[in-house]
């Protein structure tokens, strides 16, 4: 749907240039037939597999019952959206989603880029490869296992409390998961631990595309390690960073749900519950697929707004965009 509105806009201008434009266009197409062959099958593919199921969005406006045909469904207008937006908890849930995703995003970027740079600076090839492999291991833990580990590390007799007590920094063990205000931080740290190595891979790939001659030249000019990082490595990753940043800004309402669900409890629920968790509780688990769809639509709209904004901002700043 979005595609049409965006592409439809220019219609009025069309007639005057139609003839000339069309011929030139056909010729261009002919010249680029190889590129067309490369893309058209996949454009068809993406429409069938990704765009076609979007008819399901109509569910958001129905009291959807899977057994009924489309014409038999009961239309309820914005009922499910209202349920979502008018819920007492909605603002809190939205706040948690935003906070969690912003924290995860900022931490995720900074740590992954940092790790990639530092790994790149390792001079021993073997050590470098070992570090790289080990750093991405936690990505393969399911959240069930990861959350259990986080929970045990943070428990009263967990290692962190033992260190704090041992150093006499606290006089009573801290109940980390029992303080709501700490949840975002704990979540951010857990996410970082689990995914920093994985996220760094892409930057490592970007670094390896940097022409080595630049480093040699800089060395000859007497640039220090840190200077070389700042002036060669980071700029070398810039285009990838920007592309990822814009894409991730589009994910502003996607903070995941597994970790929140598994680490959430009665004492931190005011800070752990986000949109996805809310939808699971009041949607899927109540056999209410419509609520999940409505929430999904809401997220999509927000995503597009942020995506377009980030993209144009980036372009204005002369950094190129996603499209």
């Amino acid at each position: 749907m979005q595609a049409q509105t965006e592409v439809n806009a220019p219609t009025p201008k069309m007639p005057q240039r139609k003839d000339k434009g069309f011929k030139a266009f056909l010729k261009k197409c002919k010249d680029q037939r190889a590129l067309l062959i490369m893309t058209i099958p996949f454009v068809i593919w993406v429409f069938i597999f990704k765009y076609l199921p979007v008819w399901g969005w109509t569910m958001a406006f129905q009291d959807y019952k899977p057994a009924r045909t489309f014409s038999e469904q009961e239309w309820v207008g914005f009922k499910h959206f209202l349920f979502l937006f008018e819920s007492d908890r909605f603002l809190g849930v939205l706040r948690n989603t935003l906070a969690q995703s912003v924290i995860n995003m900022v931490l995720g970027f900074v740590t992954a880029i940092g790790l990639a740079v530092l790994i790149n600076e390792l001079t021993n090839m073997k050590f470098k490869r070992v570090v790289q492999t080990i750093s991405y291991l936690p990505h393969f833990l399911s959240w069930v296992v990861a959350a259990a580990l986080v929970s045990s590390v943070l428990s009263i007799d967990g290692i962190i409390n033992e260190i704090l007590m041992g150093l006499n920094l606290v006089d009573r063990e801290l109940l980390f998961l029992g303080v709501g205000e700490w949840f975002w931080g704990i979540l951010g740290a857990a996410e970082t631990w689990k995914n920093v190595g994985w996220n760094a891979i892409i930057y490592l790939a970007a670094i390896s595309m940097i022409d080595q001659e630049q480093y040699e030249a800089a060395k000859i000019d007497g640039a220090s390690r840190v200077q070389r990082i700042i002036h060669i490595t980071i700029p070398g990753m810039k285009s990838v960073i920007i592309v990822l940043l814009i894409m991730n800004i589009g994910y502003i309402l996607e903070a995941g749900f597994e970790a929140q669900y598994l680490l959430g409890n009665g004492q931190n629920v005011e800070y752990s519950e986000n949109i996805d968790v809310f939808v699971i509780k009041y949607g899927i688990s109540q056999f209410n697929f419509a609520l999940a769809t409505a929430a999904g639509m809401f997220k999509t709209v927000i995503s597009f707004v942020f995506l377009v904004a980030a993209n144009s901002l980036s372009k204005k700043m002369g950094q190129g965009g996603l499209y």
Partner: peptide
């Protein structure tokens, strides 16, 4: 030209859909 091809593209897609 630029706008036109967008339109054409959209038409194709709508048809397909």
């Amino acid at each position: 030209m630029f706008k036109f091809k967008h339109l054409l593209f959209a038409l194709m897609l709508v048809l397909l859909l």
